[in-house]
Write a protein that binds this DNA or RNA. Structure first.
Lengths: 247, 247
DNA sequence: ACTGGCAAGTTGTCTGACAACTGCTACGGT
DNA sequence: ACCGTAGCAGTTGTCAGACAACTTGCCAGT
């Protein structure tokens, strides 16, 4: 299923990987649009759409009358914006992700979680708590919550190494975006024990609410990251790129 | 100078602000492309490019054969990706940004800064250290470094309330993007004194390197943010949005 | 040696058309 | 009365060709 995405997405993927593979280095000029379109036997407009996507993502920049150039974009090992789950975050640093101390439970929704999931406080929801490891080292203590009619505790147990995101997508609830809130903190007794560090160790806590394209919140998670295990990076677009609204 | 940006950028800005103003709410369908194009007296292709930008930014989502719909995108008060400088971060929360304890100096580049700015270790560079305040409260302790031939300490003194970014842009060095690295930490004696908090207070440190579109690093900064003063948020794009490369 | 303009090449926009898809409606069979 | 299906109108996706706006390098004239 899933079907082929639209042509311009395919073209964008293609160009992105060709740039990523180093076919054109930073500062190089891409072949002209008519040229690229002719070689791929697609219309120039489709190819232009693809390039527009790459431009929006910051991979290339276009100069009217001159050409399209590959930007000197840094290759971030772990960009918060791109690496969604903890697994991909760990994998992006070249380490082997794993899990430990898994616990699947049916719990009463605590107030903040209930509010985020739009359910009544105290109603039963599925929760999955686990410690994520990188090359065997305990680095993240996570808890995920979701509605039981979306995923029951049994569903969570069955997914094994599969990601929660793909399980949700298989149920027709693909996660479109998430809002992550970052807070520094110190490990409490419980988390310290689970992560096998001293109490009070530095943590970066990420509270995240994932929603579908329709704006329905489907997954709430709280992740306590060991501060010295990762370096979290964000690519920030400069003020020149898109002047923006205020009020 | 600056010139009018391309038409599709203008159209995108226009639509973005109209959505932001609430003309169409989340879930609503936008007028059809031919309709919007006719009303603005522009070609459908230009308008399509504009909508493509909004789609890439996550404001709308298109459905082939059905229409273009406004997504339920959360209105983030302070998104790390969008709010670039500390001032805009403070202003985005509705507080009044200010500065205190400014110090302009000519210093010898410490190794990490020298590496980031691509200058010799120990060579003279401009630095600006200051405490940023929000409604008078001391919330961030920042230090900026840049090459003296880009901005001398006197240039920094002269800019007053103007941002360093606009000063760099005026010198033909517009900042295109920056890479921010986030680290939790505890306040050392010096920072604690400057921020008027207890030693060991929780901080979120942001180390950032800002570069031009050509990839030339022009500004390095280290910001110690009081943990309880802000909540840092990032909008993360879901896995469904753009399946991506790995290696 | 310098300057001005010309010309080729590239991206930006426009126009018109058709294909592919969605959602609804009306029709016909059971 | 119910249900499935074909058709239809509306929308986004793609195509083709043309011209405008801009950049860059070259070349002739001074």
């Amino acid at each position: 299923m899933t079907a082929t995405r639209s042509l311009r997405h395919l073209l964008a993927d293609e160009l992105r990987s060709r740039i990523h593979a180093g076919e054109w280095g930073p500062g190089d000029r891409l072949p002209s649009e008519p040229e690229l379109a002719r070689r791929r036997a697609v219309s120039r407009s489709s190819l232009r759409s693809a390039i527009a996507m790459l431009e929006e993502e910051g991979f290339v920049s276009r100069r009217h009358g001159s050409g399209t150039y590959v930007t000197h974009r840094p290759a971030l090992s772990n960009d918060l914006r791109r690496n969604f789950g903890v697994s991909s975050l760990i994998a992006a640093t070249g380490l082997e992700p794993g899990t430990a101390d898994e616990a699947f439970e049916l719990v009463r929704a605590p107030p903040p979680v209930a509010a985020a999931l739009a359910v009544a406080v105290g109603s039963a929801i599925s929760s999955l708590r686990r410690v994520r490891t990188a090359d065997g080292r305990r680095v993240v203590d996570t808890t995920d919550w979701c509605r039981t009619d979306d995923l029951s505790p049994e569903d969570l147990r069955e997914l094994g190494d599969g990601s929660i995101y793909s399980a949700l997508a298989a149920r027709g609830l693909p996660v479109h975006h998430g809002v992550a809130r970052l807070t520094p903190g110190n490990a409490d007794a419980d988390t310290a024990r689970r992560l096998d560090v001293a109490r009070g160790a530095l943590l970066l806590t990420i509270d995240q609410v994932d929603t579908t394209a329709e704006g329905v919140p489907v997954l709430v998670s709280r992740e306590h990251h060991l501060a010295d295990a990762f370096s979290f990076t964000v690519l920030r677009h400069g003020p020149g790129a898109d002047a923006e609204e205020e009020r």
